[in-house]
Amino acid sequence: MSGEKHHIVPYRLYFVVLIALLALTFASVWITSIELRDYTVAAALLFAIVKSYLVLNYFMHLKYDKPYIKIMVGFVFAIFLVMIVITFLDYLYR
């Protein structure tokens, strides 16, 4: 079963991804330091989501994995979102 050859990711790509991640980190520090009031968290989370997307796809090789693994990962994040939404059905309307 070890016949399946892995995709070898070049070092350079990892470095490029790192630069992108660092840029996003500083961007999120910057954007949260200006007064956006209610949108601060939303902005910070947006950057975090983009960063996690990069980590999942490149560092964790999800981009090169078979579809069923991608589906599983997507499913787990969906379940987590649903869990939050349902919990908030209680807290938002109390």
Partner: peptide
């Protein structure tokens, strides 16, 4: 003591 909305759901 949940919200009514959550109970219906």
């Amino acid at each position: 003591g949940m919200s009514g909305t959550a109970q219906y759901y």
